[in-house]
């Protein structure tokens, strides 16, 4: 396949960026999108140019590092991570636009790499349980009803990639935060911090400068892990409940 790429190039956080055009040839439809970018970078390096910086790690769709907006869609046209997107989703001769996640809470570090440490701080605010660490506890010690376990698991699938923020017209982090809140709040292990978790994580989310939810639904459409929009409804419910309980105390 022969492709024209228009890629966001930005030297560093303070520099202005622009879209630069590159031609790549000899791309196999079986390559992943990142392998296609590797091909481009090899050529750039041979020519003595600066390769395109992009985030990636596992390349298996589980770490959440890869983060490209491809033709205006976070993670591109398929519902998967950028690393699991294959070139067969495109046609020979296509022009493809590649941009970084856009949100003021995710500043561009270089080219297609953005700083997502705001997510880490949201997790630090409450995305954990207080439990003694050490050897794994006996699995049957804390019974979890099957529907609750399924619900927790569905939300635990979130890999923290930030596609939800990138796709949201308001740069909101509601889907990510709600996935974490719902995952832990439904489980008995998460019960001791049920109220503080949702209050603190939402407060941190606001503190980081993410936007608010207007229920446009773009996050859930972009999410490679299928976190549903109702996850946000669930977090709103938890937040209102915790606020009422805090007021009574």
């Amino acid at each position: 396949m022969k492709l024209t790429l228009r890629v966001w190039r930005q030297k560093n956080a303070d520099a202005d960026g622009t879209m630069s055009t590159y031609e790549v040839d000899g791309i196999s439809p079986d390559m992943s999108f990142l392998e296609m970018l590797d091909t481009l970078n090899e050529e750039l390096i041979l020519k003595g140019e600066d390769p395109v910086a992009f985030d990636h790690d596992c390349r298996e769709g589980i770490c959440g590092a890869c983060s490209l907006v491809i033709n205006g869609d976070a993670h591109g046209p398929e519902r998967t991570t950028t690393c699991q997107l294959h070139m067969r989703s495109f046609r020979d001769g296509d022009t493809i636009d590649v941009e970084p996640w856009r949100a003021s809470a995710f500043p561009v570090v270089k080219d297609l790499v953005v700083d997502r440490s705001a997510f880490d701080r949201i997790i630090q605010a409450g995305g954990y349980i207080t439990a003694p660490t050490g050897s794994a506890p006996e699995a049957h010690a804390t019974p979890v009803p099957k529907p609750d376990a399924d619900f927790a698991f569905e939300h635990a699938e979130c890999i923290g990639c930030g596609a939800c923020v990138a796709a949201c017209p308001n740069g909101a982090a509601m889907l990510f935060t709600s996935a974490k809140v719902n995952h832990l709040n439904v489980l008995p292990q998460g019960a001791p911090e049920r109220e503080t978790r949702v209050l603190d994580m939402v407060a941190q989310m606001d503190e980081e400068g993410f936007g608010g939810c207007t229920l446009a639904g773009e996050c859930a459409t972009a999410c490679p892990k299928g976190i549903p929009l109702t996850s946000i409804t669930g977090m709103n419910k938890e937040w209102l409940r915790a606020t009422r309980k805090a007021a009574k105390r």
């Binding site: 856009r102 949100a103 003021s104 308001n170 207007t214």
Partner: peptide, 28 residues
């Protein structure tokens, strides 16, 4: 207040932008 915050949280548009993303929000 919420709309102002939302616009600030997403200052730069995508070069390749999709109008559908903000249809409901804009109409509201």
């Amino acid at each position: 207040q919420l709309s102002r915050r939302d616009i600030k949280a997403r200052p730069s548009k995508y070069v390749h932008s999709k109008p559908r993303a903000s249809y409901a929000t804009r109409t509201m």
